[in-house]
Simulated assay, not measured.
Amino acid sequence: MKLCAVYKASRRADTYLYVPEKGDFTKVPSALLKAVGTPLFVMLIPVGKREHIANLPRDTFIEKVQAEGFYLQLPPKVESLLESHRQDLGHDPKP
């Protein structure tokens, strides 16, 4: 894989879909496409020239794309500062 196409999800903030060929969503499950909305083209990435892609080491990224036919990058989990503070104080987390 030399290039990878990156698409932004129109229905989910900070969510990106990576496919090995621009415009080819044949291996992306229809339920996933429906959930993320219309993919909006962002760019083509030269895979061989990057150490990390989608916050993954290049080889791991390539393995995932080749195995599934796509890769979905979700936004990082937002840390609750209040919950962190409560834990630091020794309080039980909220039920």
Rank of each mutant, 00 (worst) to 15 (best):
M1E: 14
K2M: 06
L3C: 09
L3P: 00
L3G: 05
A5Q: 11
A5F: 09
V6D: 06
V6Y: 06
Y7H: 01
K8S: 05
A9T: 13
S10A: 13
S10G: 04
R12Q: 14
D14F: 03
T15I: 08
Y18E: 01
Y18I: 03
V19I: 14
V19G: 02
V19R: 01
P20G: 02
E21T: 15
E21H: 14
K22V: 10
K22F: 08
D24I: 03
F25I: 00
V28L: 01
V28D: 02
P29A: 06
P29E: 07
P29I: 03
S30G: 01
A31N: 12
L32C: 12
A35N: 12
A35T: 08
A35C: 04
V36C: 12
V36I: 15
V36Q: 12
G37K: 09
T38I: 08
T38F: 09
P39S: 12
L40A: 08
F41M: 03
V42H: 10
L44K: 06
V47N: 07
G48R: 00
K49V: 03
E51N: 11
E51V: 07
H52R: 10
H52D: 05
I53T: 04
A54E: 02
N55I: 02
R58D: 02
D59T: 10
T60V: 13
F61Q: 06
I62F: 00
E63L: 04
E63R: 08
E63C: 00
K64N: 05
V65C: 02
V65L: 05
Q66D: 11
A67N: 04
E68M: 13
E68W: 08
G69S: 10
F70M: 04
Y71G: 04
L72N: 07
Q73I: 00
Q73M: 07
L74A: 12
L74G: 05
L74C: 09
P75E: 01
K77N: 11
K77T: 14
V78Q: 15
L82Y: 14
L82S: 11
H85A: 15
H85V: 10
H85M: 15
R86Q: 07
R86C: 08
Q87D: 01
Q87R: 12
D88T: 09
D88L: 13
P93H: 01
K94F: 11
K94C: 03
